[in-house]
Design a protein around this nucleic acid. Structure first.
Length: 822
RNA sequence: GCGGGUGUGGUGAAAUAGGUAGACACGCAAGACUUAAAAUCUUGUCGCUUUCGAGCGGUGCCGGUUCAACUCCGGCCACCCGCACCA
């Protein structure tokens, strides 16, 4: 008897969670007759405590997992920790706690919060990326990539913090200053490790066309990020030297309008010119000093200097001066551009600044409304060629081909595909990361650590003294012998970008205890992640890197599919005061006190009800109290009342139901049908909640007391409890047990009784000239004649039809009837 | 600047293939219970008008297509996100 029992969320949730743990309910196995379903939520960085953004992501993943379990799938729903990263080092410096210890404590706390939220994770597969058992395989994979030349060392121009003496990622540069030191960031040439992701640029782009389970929005972001373009690389021979200058352009049709060439400040020609011209030298230094993050470069005025060099135009033979300009990027194309001020806005501004000639070679298409006004700006649209000799009159496409051909004949140019995507710089001058498994030998160069010597362990007993990585001050650690020549050599003291760990963790979950390899055959069983759930802010970097890793793993024979994530659910942010939630967001970001006061089910229910998954929304905790109240006064109370009155449950005899009973039962089965669609196809969990709420609102008003009515009520309650169980699993577990005597963990989603959905009458909206004038009851699928006859008798409709001639009648069965009158 | 998204009551939102706009909640107001409060329950809640039957207006703004538009098309505006001199 539960009539005396009030809803006690603490007791219910503790009992149910304990039951799950004892039974190992969510431990996934590979020997099941059921079809597999791999649902993955992005693992967190163990910052210390969960915030509402985590709660939202993991509740969504949990709801999907639990629904798929009810649908009879063998579900894998793992969780782990993205445990390397900078905050641990900052904590170490500020509070003198070793990063490993700080991280471990955070994981323990966050894990207990996840347990309290009732997430159906298979904890038997848990790992942290700072576990040597995990990162040893990353090191192993790194050496595989090195042997395939997918990893290489090169010098690149990067953001350099002169105070902290480290390379900074672009996102660590704020307004041109280092985020920690606040020192102006410099551009500096640094030698570091890169991964050749550009080798896969074309495939990464093309496969996007075969990912129907990904939102178009995310695919567009990735396409833009990869940034494929088709153009021509044109060779301009240097005047008076044997050397030449290569320039990439997507607008070869403007080639005859070139009035100068501009190279990047880091370009070899510029550096060479600077060597004997102090003015140029100081300009180059100024560029490297003042230019921080690339994004800031765009805001600066166009500046440049003539190098005193000239090249020959490949087609006209004209002499063209070479400049150095601050807006040319060394990292894109060949670090040099042909300047066509008439048809490129940047070149136009540059030409204005230094009074360079502007030569129009493109005229607007005759049928277009565009105008070419070179006094006020460049004409950048495509058009017809003029002032271009034999190419005059050609349009863009014809000119592209003709000029490409003309250049090819002179061996001064060829078609080229270019990508905005650049190779991935993976080395970090940090301590708390995966050691790069390479040894630098003066004789043999960079040598990978042999497999039998892996893992290269990251020492955890470290002292943080001042700035920089402790590894660089640990000769005991980095001094070693060269694996090839046996001579004295040094380990690489940089560590890997933490995006490396998150690029393959999804695959490792299939076999997280594999001892003899990075992956084993269980990775084939679980295959692609069926549904990947996580913050939309990872739309580009993480998802691109993971796709890249997957393809490399495929080429190494470790996985069989081309793509890691079949379906993707990008989740909107949980905002607080208009900004993204984070651990610094304060108390309201922490779910702890809400969990204690209202319970996990209430928090989960409020979160799911608040908004559809993709949408960002402002968190308000009012909803949690309301959710708790609803669970208590509606769901729990109705079940208690039903059991309490001891309503005899007869077997439902559909033919003997009263109209009210039939309506009630129809609503139950409509709920079942709609919610299955909302969970499975629409991923619309807020409407699942409102649909079940609506069902119970009707049940409150359903007052009949016969045995048949008791049966109808019992069925409605079982449907409500089962339907809601993915969202509020604890209370539903308890209520299901009361209602059926069985465990909901073994329940299946019931079949909808089609016959229960049949109606004896439907409401038809009646419009006159498109305006709603009345509603009438007609038989389902009534003929137009019948519907018209009933509708014409409706008083208000009659009023608006009086004295009018019916011109037309539009009838949508079971929905609307529209009289067009005059 | 380029690309994408969003815009519906006081608030979160719903309307799934063009067919009854505002479901379901929060908040608010009134009432019941109570000595009182809390808790709970009931009723009302887009605006204006109303003879209480209903009428008019209404989904960011302007226009269009249609018997019918939150939904489709064209043009604006605002906010958000991503990229940003990519040659």
């Amino acid at each position: 008897m539960m009539n005396k029992q009030r809803y006690d969320h603490v007791k219910v949730e503790n009992d149910v969670q304990q039951g799950w743990e004892e039974a190992g309910t969510f431990v996934a196995t590979e020997n099941s007759d059921k079809p597999k379903y791999y649902c993955l939520s992005m693992f967190p960085y163990p910052s210390g405590q969960l915030h509402m953004g985590h709660v939202r992501t993991y509740t969504l993943g949990d709801v999907i997992s639990r629904f798929q379990r009810l649908q009879g799938r063998n579900v894998l729903h793992p969780m782990g920790w993205d445990a390397f990263g900078l905050p641990a080092e900052n904590a170490a410096i500020q509070r003198n706690i070793p990063p490993a210890q700080w991280t471990k404590g955070n994981i323990e706390h966050m894990k207990s919060q996840m347990r309290a939220l009732g997430f159906s994770f298979d904890w038997s597969r848990e790992f942290a990326t700072c576990d040597p058992d995990y990162y040893r395989w990353e090191q192993w994979f790194f050496t595989r990539m090195f042997r395939k030349s997918l990893v290489y060392k090169k010098s690149a121009w990067l953001n350099w913090d002169p105070v902290d003496k480290t390379v900074l990622a672009n996102e660590q540069v704020v307004d041109g200053r280092g985020w920690r030191s606040d020192a102006p960031v410099e551009r500096r040439e640094v030698t570091q490790w890169f991964v050749r992701i550009t080798d896969y640029a074309e495939e990464l782009l093309n496969c996007l066309d075969h990912l129907p389970g990904w939102p178009e929005k995310i695919k567009t972001l990735q396409r833009n990020w990869i940034g494929k373009s088709r153009g021509i690389s044109v060779i301009f021979p240097l005047k008076g030297e044997a050397d030449s200058l290569s320039v990439y352009t997507t607008r070869p049709d403007t080639l005859m309008g070139v009035t100068s060439i501009a190279v990047a400040p880091q370009h070899p020609l510029a550096i060479k010119a600077g060597a004997d011209k102090p003015a140029i030298q100081s300009f180059l230094e100024q560029c490297n000093r003042t230019l921080g993050a690339e994004a800031n470069i765009a805001k600066l005025p166009k500046q440049g200097m003539a190098l005193g060099l000239a090249v020959t135009h490949p087609l006209s033979g004209e002499e063209i001066p070479v400049w150095v300009a601050n807006f040319v990027l060394m990292e894109y194309g060949s670090g040099a551009v042909m300047s066509v001020p008439a048809h490129d806005q940047r070149d136009w501004e540059f030409a204005q600044e230094y009074q360079l000639p502007i030569k129009q070679v493109i005229a607007p298409l005759p049928e277009s409304a565009e105008e070419c006004a070179l006094d006020s700006g460049a004409f950048t649209a495509r058009g017809l060629l003029i002032n271009s000799g034999s190419f005059d009159g050609l349009d863009f496409d014809a000119a592209f081909d003709a000029i490409a051909l003309a250049l090819a004949e002179k061996k001064l140019g060829e078609q080229q595909i270019n990508y905005r995507l650049r190779d991935w710089g993976v080395a970090r001058q940090r301590y708390w990361g995966c050691p790069i498994p390479m040894i630098n030998c003066a004789q043999c160069g960079a040598v990978p650590v042999p497999d039998e010597d892996l893992p290269v362990l990251l020492p955890t007993e470290v002292e943080f003294e001042g700035l920089g990585s402790p590894l660089k001050k640990m000769p005991d650690w980095y001094e070693t012998d060269c694996p090839e020549c046996g001579g004295a050599a040094q380990r690489e003291t940089d560590t890997l970008d933490t995006f490396m760990e998150s690029s393959w963790y999804y695959a490792r979950f299939a076999c997280s205890d594999a001892k003899d390899g990075m992956l084993d055959e269980r990775a084939d069983y679980w295959g692609q992640v069926d549904h990947y759930v996580g913050g939309e802010e990872h739309a580009i970097l993480h998802l691109l890197y993971a796709r890249f890793f997957h393809k490399v793993m495929r080429d190494e024979g470790m996985v069989k599919s081309d793509e890691p994530f079949e379906k993707l659910l990008p989740i909107g942010m949980v905002l607080q005061g208009g900004t993204k939630m984070s651990k610094s967001a304060g108390d309201a970001g922490d779910p702890q006190h809400l969990l204690e006061q209202y319970g996990a089910d209430a928090v989960r229910l409020a979160m799911m009800f608040a908004s559809p998954p993709e949408q960002s929304f402002e968190w308000s905790q009012q909803g949690v109290e309301a959710a708790n109240k609803w669970l208590r006064t509606r769901l729990w109370a109705l079940v208690a009342q039903h059991l309490d009155t001891g309503d005899k449950e007869a077997k439902i005899d559909a033919r003997r139901l009263t109209p009210a009973e039939r309506d009630m039962r129809r609503l139950s089965h409509e709920t079942l049908s709609k919610c299955a669609d909302d969970y499975g196809r629409r991923l619309s969990f807020n409407t699942v909640v409102s649909t079940v709420m609506s069902l119970l609102n009707h049940l409150v008003k359903f007052a009949e007391t016969s045995p048949q009515a008791g049966a109808v009520r019992g069925e409605a309650l079982r449907i409500a409890v089962l339907t809601l169980s993915p969202i509020t699993p604890h209370i539903c577990h308890a209520l299901w047990e009361q209602l059926t005597g069985e465990s909901i963990d073994r329940a299946d989603w019931p079949a909808v009784d089609r016959s229960a959905l049949e109606k004896t009458s439907v409401e038809l909206a009646v419009q006159v000239n498109g305006k709603l004038r009345g509603r009438v009851q007609v038989q389902p699928d009534a003929s137009e004649d019948e519907a018209v006859a009933v509708a014409r008798e409706e008083a208000n409709v009659k009023k608006f039809m009086a004295g009018k001639t019916t011109r037309k009648c539009i009838y949508v069965p079971n929905r609307v009837l529209n009289f067009v009158v005059s």
